[in-house]
């Protein structure tokens, strides 16, 4: 017992109205984690935020010209690790070149990746076949 594994896969059209749905899934999952001993309410908000930011990122980087384009999101929880993957079909971007926000001269954009990096433990963005994959890991203990 207690090795319960949660696996979620959601495929949505590239429309912002689905952000609430995706974020809410993260929030609910945070409340179901048996082993997590930290601040559950904070984790719920952070997963909601990270999933929202990653999904809008994929929607923006997706093929906007194609109305049938989709974003696939998978969430796996195994042992002490929560793994999120967000797949887009766009041109991709260089994650390493995304700068930190300039806190002394704040701008309207560029805070999404900052949130993901700050609130999670590992973030990578790689090309896999015909997709780009943003992989986010959060250790739960």
């Amino acid at each position: 017992m207690c090795n319960s594994i949660i696996q979620v896969e959601v495929i949505i059209p590239t429309q912002t109205k689905y952000l609430d749905l995706i974020g809410s899934i993260g929030e609910h999952i945070a409340k179901e984690l048996d082993k997590f001993s930290g601040d559950r309410e904070a984790l719920a908000y952070h997963l909601n935020l990270v999933l929202t930011e990653a999904t809008i990122n994929a929607i923006k980087h997706g093929t906007l010209a194609n109305p049938d384009d989709t974003v696939r999101i998978t969430i796996h929880i195994q042992e002490n690790e929560l793994n999120i993957k967000v797949y887009d079909h766009g041109q991709g971007f260089d994650l390493e070149s995304v700068p930190l926000p300039d806190f002394d001269h704040p701008k309207e954009g560029g805070m999404g990746i900052f949130f993901i990096r700050t609130l999670m433990d590992s973030v990578t963005y790689t090309r896999q076949g015909d997709c780009n994959v943003l992989e986010i890991i959060k250790y739960l203990s």
Binding site: E53, I56, K107
Partner: peptide, 13 residues
Amino acid sequence: RFIDSSGLGALLS
């Protein structure tokens, strides 16, 4: 109860 980076950006604007 929830705001993302674009919401912060809208208020900053």
